[in-house]
Every structure is written in structure tokens, then in C-alpha cells.
Design a protein around this nucleic acid. Structure first.
Lengths: 203, 203
DNA sequence: CAGGAATTGTGACATCTGTCATGCGGCCGT
DNA sequence: ACGGCCGCATGACAGATGTCACAATTCCTG
């Protein structure tokens, strides 16, 4: 029986190495490449054509979610497992829309990783049970693209004036978007709004 | 030759399991316990008396820095290695003050972990080279306790009025502290100030 | 095509934020 | 014991922020 061929994408070198070691212990799994960002992962996927791509979400160059989308388009048979720190319904939803077969949290026992790889390889879906329950009653993102963009940057300390200048909008318009976002999210100010949105995985 | 006995403290189960696997591959190292927070780590340290304690910083119950301090007091021979995501000079400084013998980043190759464990066990110090250079010219925290406290909460979206009420201060006073903090950090507003302070490991 | 949603804009207003000057009492170190 | 920082406070002011009402344009959808 041939081994399940896996590519591993994760930006923290030590964690990447450790996860690779973990998977390589399994006699039916072989890590054929391990890379540190979305770009490299995309190239490695084309070159190695693995059975399963295991990827983090938050990485430099290209996030795991974009990576999933692009890999799915080009190599539809390749299975994708997202492994992330973040239990955000918004992320899970986007991951599933992007065509991921698995979504599991770094909070879960290490043994679940190899098991998840095997299952998606057999065509099954593996989703963190707690999150799967949440996704049904989770509201979806009420923000428009512009609102998201502005809120994200406002949450990083950019002032209204800076936002207006860099986005070529009037200050009044920027204030309007922020006001809208704040009210949609039931927050008291831009800071709280940004935190709320981030926590739900909408930014 | 007896193995180096190690306790591993890290809150994300999957990462913890993977790091344990990584260390256990080494023939001269044995992970005698692996735990998910500072409290458990403290108890495990008393029970197992390991040679080396490998710990993350950001954990529930007790941070790795507090843990290091307390373990050092009670068991001075035990060596401590901090393994963290955060390349913050403030963290490194506090780690060394707390008596840690090693400080390495999850960004570094997996192979460095086992090597660091061996070195600190032999009485050497292991500090991430990039950070070690930075610590000499790194300014230290200019904030007073009050400023820190207020800035932390302001950065989480609490308004001036809420802060004043919950800290039993006048609104004007809260604004004064924020103003002071903003100016000390060279920021444009409370949001940027909070981010800056956080990035340096001062919050 | 009509209607709706998103984008952008203006003006006016109330409130919140950030700054500055100034003052007082307490505590620490020399 | 005295100077200097810290914590706390006030008052006043300018500028930033949040809210509201209203409107023009574009683009998509039924």
C-alpha cells in the first residue's frame, strides 16, 4: 500500500518541523514537502501533486484560505485540511466555501491530525465538532467590502484623515462607513467594532 | 548515560503533542510530562523534578514568565527554556530577569529546540541571536503602572467614561494618563499607542 | 425595467479625545 | 528634611469622532 503524500504549510518553523515529525511517525503518511508560506505551498502543490495539503490560515504572502481556493481550482482532486489557532465561525465558513475538506484547531490533541489526514484522503469531511455546531446559528458578516477595509485599518490606529487620504475618499465618507460598521456590530466605538469583527473572523 | 528529563508546557494541544514527539525522537531526551498551562506546569515541576522545563509564554492561568519566576525560587537547579512566538525585547528581558536560561522563537528551525535543551542542561545560556542583539539598544518601558493598565484596557475598546467608572477616577484623569502614554510612545492616538506598547512587550 | 444595495458625497450637530496649565498630597531616596 | 516623581484632580480648548438626514451614481437582480 502506498503512503498518503502530504504537503505541510505553516509559517512558524518550529511548529512546522514538529508537525512534520508527528506525521512522519505514522507509517501510512509521508510528508513530501513542508513550506512556510502560501506562495511556496502553491508551487509545491503543482510540483509534488500530493494527496493532501495541510495548511495554516495566517501566513505571509498568501493566507491558507486563498491558497485553498487557488489549489482547488487547479487541482480539484487534492484534499485540503486547514489547521489553525482560530475558532472563528467566519473562518470555517470561508474555508468550506474555498473547498477545504477539513478544519481543525491547534487546540485539539495531536493524534487528530493524522486521523484527519486519513479521513479526508478517503473522501470524508473532518470539521471540528464544536465549531460545526456553531456555524449554524452564527450570524454572517453584515459588513460591506468597504466597511471591512476601513474598519480593519482603523483598528490598527489609522486616523480618519489618514484613511480618507490613502483611500481617496472624503473624511465625511470615512466617518459614515465607520458609523455604519459600529452600528451594525453594536459597538460603542471603532476600537470595539474592530475587535468584535476580528473575533468573528470577519476581518 | 541517563536521559535529560523534560517537562513541556504549551497551551495548544496539537503543538504540544508535536513538540513532545519531536523531543522524544532524540535518544538523549525524555519528555516526562506535558501540560497545558502554568499552574499544571508548576505542580508537575514539583512532582517530577525535571532537568529542564520548556515553556511557552502566553498560557492561561499563569504565564510562562510567572511560572519561570516561581520555579526558580523553589527549584533553583531546574533549567528553564522559553519557547514563544513573540520576538519582543520586553519579553526577553523579563524572561532573563525571571531566571530563564534559554529564550527561543517558534520561528526557528525545529532542530534548535533539542539543541537548546542540551545546552541549557550543560549550564549554558541559549538566547535567540537576533533578539539578543536587540536587547542592548532596546529602550525600556517608559510607562507607569497606571498608564499601562489604562492603555491596555483602552486598547480593548473601553471608553474613557467606562475606564473612569471602573477605576474610580475622573474622566479628565483617565484622559491625562492616555495623553501621557500616547506622547511617551510617540503615537497619534490611543489605538496606535496600545499597539506599539503591545508590540514591544510592555502590556 | 423597477427596485435594492453599495459607494460616495455634503452639511450640521453633539460628544468624545487629546493637550496643556496648574495644583495638591504622598512617598522615596539622598 | 527637601526635591522630585507619582497618582490624582480640575478647567478650558481645539480638533477628532460619531450620528443623522439627504442625495447622486452605479451595478446587480428579479
Amino acid at each position: 500500500m502506498s503512503k498518503i503524500r502530504v504537503i505541510l504549510a505553516e509559517d512558524q518553523a518550529m511548529v512546522r518541523g514538529a508537525l512534520a515529525a508527528l506525521l512522519n511517525i505514522e507509517s501510512d503518511i509521508e510528508v513530501v514537502a513542508s513550506v512556510s508560506n502560501g506562495d511556496e505551498a502553491f508551487r509545491a502543490a503543482g510540483q509534488h501533486r500530493p494527496d493532501v495539503l495541510v495548511t495554516d490560515i495566517e501566513m505571509p504572502q498568501m493566507t491558507g484560505l486563498e491558497l485553498a481556493t487557488r489549489v482547488r481550482e487547479l487541482y480539484p482532486v487534492m484534499k485540503i485540511v486547514i489547521v489553525t489557532t482560530f475558532a472563528r465561525p467566519g473562518y470555517l465558513r470561508r474555508a468550506l466555501e474555498a473547498g477545504a475538506s477539513g478544519y481543525l484547531l491547534k487546540d485539539r490533541p495531536a493524534s487528530e491530525l493524522a486521523e484527519a489526514v486519513r479521513r479526508v484522503h478517503q473522501g470524508m469531511r473532518v470539521v471540528d465538532p464544536g465549531l460545526a455546531a456553531e456555524i449554524w446559528n452564527a450570524e454572517d458578516d453584515p459588513l460591506t467590502e468597504r466597511e471591512r477595509q476601513i474598519l480593519r485599518r482603523a483598528g490598527e490606529g489609522e486616523t480618519t484623515a489618514e484613511l480618507a487620504k490613502s483611500l481617496r475618499l472624503s473624511e465625511g465618507t470615512v466617518r459614515n462607513y465607520l458609523s455604519e460598521a459600529i452600528s451594525k456590530l453594536g459597538a460603542a466605538n471603532r476600537i470595539e467594532a474592530a475587535r468584535t469583527a476580528r473575533a468573528k473572523g470577519w476581518l
